[in-house]
């Protein structure tokens, strides 16, 4: 087994773990975290493909690597926006969940 294959299997498990966490965890903050796990797994898979495309004296194919750098930045932007939305919901309702507030809250 080569290191690239090992990290490929790692990325597969990360994607599964992130997907499971997103589906099962009810709290939005945990869903955001799991989404980031899922994204990290996807990026790592790109890295493995890049590593296997090593040629021309480079350690890996630079095109997937550059795409992953862009991806990490976009994932950060999405996380920052999601966290800001979550904190605003929390400001409005006093609850860090997306559940409907109890009727006595009066919306």
């Amino acid at each position: 087994m080569t290191p690239a294959t090992l990290y490929g299997l790692c990325s597969a498990v990360l994607v599964g773990a992130g997907l499971y966490g997103m589906l099962v965890n009810p709290q939005p903050l945990r869903k955001i975290l799991s989404l980031n796990l899922l994204g990290s797994g996807t990026f790592l898979l790109f890295g493995v493909i890049a590593r296997r495309g090593a040629a021309a004296g480079l350690g890996g194919d630079p095109v997937p690597q550059a795409m992953v750098i862009t991806g990490i930045v976009v994932a950060f932007s999405a996380t920052a926006l999601a966290v800001a939305l979550l904190l605003r919901v929390f400001q409005e309702t006093g609850r860090p969940t997306l559940d409907q507030p109890a009727p006595k809250d009066g919306g």
């Binding site: 490929g8 299997l9 898979l45 296997r52 495309g53 090593a54 480079l58 194919d61």
Partner: peptide
């Protein structure tokens, strides 16, 4: 990951 263990197509030369 396991089935495609060989060298991947690469744009490294072109890059």
């Amino acid at each position: 990951v396991l089935w495609t263990a060989g060298p991947a197509p690469s744009l490294a030369e072109a890059a």
